[in-house]
Nucleic acid binder design. Structure first.
Lengths: 204, 204, 204, 204
DNA sequence: AATGAATGAGCCTTCATTCAT
DNA sequence: GATGAATGAAGGCTCATTCAT
């Protein structure tokens, strides 16, 4: 490989990186709109307007609406997972793990509930629209693995799938209530997850 | 109150009942279309065509699409709940309750998964569209009460909400897999709910 | 079959006829727009606006743009063919046939050139877009048969396909010139078709 | 005129030639895309991608899409005409001319039908879009002259326009059938042109 | 000289809703 | 009571063209 080829490759890489950066940037803006209105109620026009981009640009970077949405969801959920792993890493004892996990769940609901709705939205869409299925399936597997790691830290032997069903089921309940009921605050959320973690330990 | 007024009232009632019957009839047809395509992908035209009704009639009996949908969901979920209660009534011992509940869950997934998607669909919609909120909230309360009754039959003392989170979380997982993965069959579903009921008992 | 069935059938027929009439009406309006701008340059909005119809109505009667266009072309070309046959029927002697055919060609160019462009337009489109192929193929066969009938009246034995190639080739030339060149008038068109008919007779 | 001016002029010429060469190069690539999809269905992006050029370059060398297209068509048809003339030059006797012309027509359909569609496409476009008219008119005159020269070689006295109408009309038919009907092969094309040349001779 | 990011007007299509019959 | 014709706003998407680099 000579110098010229290297240079060309470098330039192509830089361009590709730049494009990826831009896509990420757009996705961040798009998520802001999607999170508020949901998948079905958010038009590309909405996304463009809300984030000061032109409609054409959205299609310049993303083949179609589906690609944009799945990109957003994937990006977002990956961030969430790595954040979660990052936090859980700090746990040494089972008690610490339990505490950190509890804090994280509460914190996510209280500061980020709106954002997580998007994930539930797309997941439900995938029940009717096959195009979302690969993305959703992948992400759900990743989430179960996360729960598995948390369970390990908590020294639980139970089936990760069951634990995930429990945690995810409760997460949705808390999210829904915290979002839609003004009287439902942090305290209630904390209580909800305290019960949940107790149940996790009971399951084993 | 005189005789005439009574007569008028009677007639109005008869009319109202007739109207209600018709609405119920329409709803049954509409559900058939909705369960296949989902809320967002089903137009009123689809519903009208699939059930041999005229487009105008839909708006004659229902103010708008929202009212039709919520009517359908309420009707459907109520039926489900009373069916579930009906079955659970037969249980005398905790073991019978456990067995019946297990069978019911499996049976519902295997024969009716497609239908239940609609419920998950609307529930998710309610996260973004307030008009669905009352319906969804009411129904979810009813479902938790059902789980409470099941728990009683199983002689479990645990918090119904936690049990509901677990069962509902697992139900969604099984539904999703059974619907989208051809290799995922009754056997897998049975195993899933066996784990779930074991967990319920562990929780207490 | 009882009276009721008959009544229902009658009503359905009437409705279907009414719909067909409306489609024909829309097609007539649409053709007016299409002949001016051509297929590629005419949007459904153009058609709707130019004929005082709403955009939605176009789609209420026609599945999509393709169906509308093919409907227009078929309808139009069929009219042309039956008109042509109607005129040629009057011919008794070969000389009369020759004269009538000549007059008809000239008349069509002079009064209807613009309209016939649409046919050439769609025929060319069919080279690139298969959806037009059935319509175009059918119509071209019908046109060759028409030329066959004319040839019979003129007592020519030559292959109808060759005669059609000649007449159609010249028709396009005359149409193009008459349409685009202001100095090219009826006299020139007449001369063109005189040469053509002489050639037809020469071919035999 | 002094030496300096000369030098500048020379340099300008060289530049202009270089630019012309580049335009020709681009045109060749563009034709490849146009030939497949047709004028209306080919975007500048398609052309750029298919030929590994940048989108901007297209506009750098050509004012707009129209100029690019007309340039392509002119270039292409000129090549075709000179090729045709080149072949016909070899004919000495009328029989040779006839044979060569027949072979050429068949060969063109069989190996190049797709390419010639473009010409028909633009010619039809010119019926609705005046910008194509000069190009189309010029080219059609040139084609009639070619037919004139062929007729001369075949020692036919008939009007070139009539002969062109016949040949061109049949060429289009053969092209359309050969392109769209898999059962229509070389044999059928040969028969078609045999009839056509017989007719030419009959016309005189 | 050459690139490709960005634009925005325009296209086809869908759909809840209205209304005359 | 019931129908379905008609509407028009909105949606996803395409594309020639411009412009900063």
């Amino acid at each position: 490989m000579n110098a010229l080829t290297n240079k060309l490759k470098e330039r192509a890489d830089r361009k590709s990186t730049k494009r990826e950066d831009k896509k990420r940037l757009i996705a961040e803006s798009a998520i802001k709109a999607l999170v508020v209105l949901g998948y079905a109620n958010t038009s590309l026009r909405d996304i463009a307007e809300q984030s000061g981009m032109s409609l054409g640009m959205l299609h310049y970077y993303f083949e179609d609406k589906i690609e944009l949405i799945t990109y957003c969801v994937t990006r977002y959920k990956e961030d969430f997972i790595s954040q979660l792993d990052g936090v859980m890493e700090q746990a040494v004892t089972p008690e610490q793990a339990e505490q950190l996990f509890h804090n994280l769940l509460v914190h996510t609901i209280v500061t980020d509930a709106a954002t997580h709705r998007l994930w539930f939205d797309i997941r439900t869409q995938s029940l009717f629209d096959e195009v979302f299925l690969p993305t959703v399936t992948d992400l759900e597997i990743a989430l179960i693995e996360v729960v598995q790691r948390v369970a390990n830290k908590m020294q639980l032997q139970a089936d990760a799938e069951v634990l995930y069903a429990l945690v995810n089921g409760m997460f949705r309940i808390q999210m829904q209530r915290y979002t839609s009921d003004d009287d439902y605050g942090r305290e209630q959320v904390e209580a909800g997850f305290t019960k949940t973690i107790a149940a996790m330990k009971a399951i084993g």
